[in-house]
């Protein structure tokens, strides 16, 4: 009975995988058909549209970067102030009441970090639109220089914010160790976490790995189609493929190293 159950389960898994692959193939075929028959005739129009969008961003590069920096600074300061107040509450309250503030601390820290990273990504995207010799040579070099200065200022603020964020958390929880400017910071931080905190970190890390492995193949497909139809550049395809490979190999390497370490023990 057990063997039959196992074989049914196995068949179902193969069948399900086959259906998934067929579905993706069908979706790919439909997308290909649509792109070739409907969009291909307008491909130059789409390319012009993209170039237009990039030139619009180029035109407003300085105010856009200023806006990103303003949002980053205002949100960063409000976030740190809120975190300090939460820290005070954590130190003043006990047991069940403190659980609520611990959650608030986690949530506020997560929002702050997310906005910080988002600001860095937005800065790069906006500045990247100006990376064109044509744009710089067309008497826009002052604009580009100003954009670079704002970009550096914003990036410096974001970097310093990360250090201040870690220091704030360390003030609330003095047991948390690690120098945020050190390249071994993550390792030092993990060392200072207890077993329950480590479990949360490991679970979150595995979830991120799983999600990354779901998104990267899709992104690779998008960058590949983008390059095929809109000439968006092979670099995007190579970069996405490299990230996928690095993430997978890092995970597998870590698993093997940990198993080997257990074997030696």
């Amino acid at each position: 009975m057990k063997t039959t159950d196992k074989s049914i389960k196995k068949t179902n898994s193969y069948l399900r995988m086959g259906i998934i692959m067929l579905t993706f193939a069908a979706v790919g075929a439909v997308i290909g058909f649509v792109l070739i028959n409907i969009l291909y005739g307008n491909i130059n129009g789409i390319k012009t549209g993209f170039s237009g969008a990039v030139s619009q961003i180029q035109q407003f590069m300085v105010p856009l970067l200023l806006a990103i920096m303003a949002v980053s600074v205002i949100y960063g300061e409000v976030n740190l102030h809120k975190l300090k107040l939460i820290g005070k509450m954590i130190l003043q309250t006990e047991d069940e009441e403190c659980d609520k503030w611990d959650y608030e601390e986690e949530k506020t820290g997560a929002w702050g970090t997310a906005v910080n990273v988002l600001s860095q990504i937005a800065c790069i995207l906006v500045l990247a639109s100006g990376y064109s010799l044509k744009y710089i040579e067309d008497e826009h070099h002052v604009n580009m220089l100003a954009a670079c200065v704002i970009f550096l200022a914003c990036y410096s603020y974001d970097g310093l914010w990360s250090v201040r964020f870690v220091k704030t958390i360390q003030n609330i929880h003095p047991e948390k160790k690690g120098d945020p400017s050190s390249k071994n910071f993550r390792e030092q931080w993990l060392q200072s976490c207890d077993e329950a905190e480590k479990e949360i970190i490991y679970q979150s890390a595995y979830k991120s790995y799983s999600r990354t492995n779901q998104w990267l193949p899709a992104l690779l497909g998008i960058t590949m189609l983008g390059h095929l139809f809109f000439d968006t550049g092979i670099m995007a395809v190579i970069t996405t493929a490299a990230i996928w490979l690095i993430v997978t190999v890092s995970y597998l390497h870590s698993c093997v190293v940990l198993k080997r370490a257990k074997l030696r023990e």
Binding site: E94, D95, C98, D99, D102, E175, D194, A196, E197
Partner: peptide, 19 residues
């Protein structure tokens, strides 16, 4: 309280709360 027990056991207050 949880903080004191956590300190004695060498873990955080949150861990005591989770247990």
């Amino acid at each position: 309280n949880q903080t004191e027990l956590g300190r004695m056991a060498g873990v955080s207050r949150q861990t005591i709360s989770l247990i």
